[in-house]
């Protein structure tokens, strides 16, 4: 464009700037829903809770249920398993946590069944501490789901749960 002498150059500059600013806001407003639509939708979020009936889980048994698409171990612990977990000094733990802090009622341990190393599902009643053993890279968890040996950095994750009665829990 040729150089133009404007009577009030600031007016044109202002109009360009204002239009540009509104354009940016409009573009952001248009883009946002297109990005946000990829977030989990309402029906996925509604799968956030799962109910578990504890009645038929025998002592010593571990049951795997699905919560938010992930495996969760519900372990009915024996008195020995509880005692072993409580007797462990915290100094031996890579990710220190007391057994009391990991189970609302000591006989029921509920942990997410995903190894905190790279995500495999560990095998129950295996490993040195009879907790869990992850076959992928050899992580060993105890009867409170705490990491004892191997490359996993953290204890098995505790999902949020609550007792809706003595024999029922709701996870999530």
């Amino acid at each position: 464009m040729a150089e133009l002498t404007l009577e009030d150059p600031a007016r044109r500059d202002f109009l360009y700037l204002a239009t540009g600013a509104i354009g940016v806001v409009a573009a952001a407003g248009a883009i946002w829903p297109l990005i946000n639509q990829m977030e989990p939708d309402a029906s996925t979020l509604a799968q956030a809770t799962t109910e578990v009936d504890l009645t038929n889980i025998a002592e010593g048994q571990i049951v795997t249920i699905k919560w938010q698409g992930k495996p969760v171990f519900v372990r009915h612990r024996t008195a020995k398993e509880i005692a072993d977990a409580r007797a462990t000094p915290l100094s031996e733990l890579k990710d220190p946590a007391t057994d009391e802090s990991r189970a609302q009622k000591p006989e029921w341990l509920i942990v997410v069944g995903i190894c905190t190393h790279l995500g495999c599902v560990p095998l129950g009643h295996q490993g040195k501490y009879e907790g869990w053993f992850c076959p992928c890279h050899g992580s060993v968890y105890d009867t409170a789901g705490r990491i004892r040996q191997g490359p996993a950095p953290k204890n098995l994750v505790l999902p949020p749960y609550k007792y809706t009665s003595n024999t029922k829990i709701t996870i999530g």
């Binding site: 829903p33 297109l34 639509q37 977030e39 939708d41 309402a42 029906s43 996925t44």
Partner: peptide
């Protein structure tokens, strides 16, 4: 219908 009801901004798209 899932798009209309559950997906974020699905009704809009």
């Amino acid at each position: 219908e899932h798009i209309m009801r559950d997906v974020n901004y699905g009704w809009l798209m």
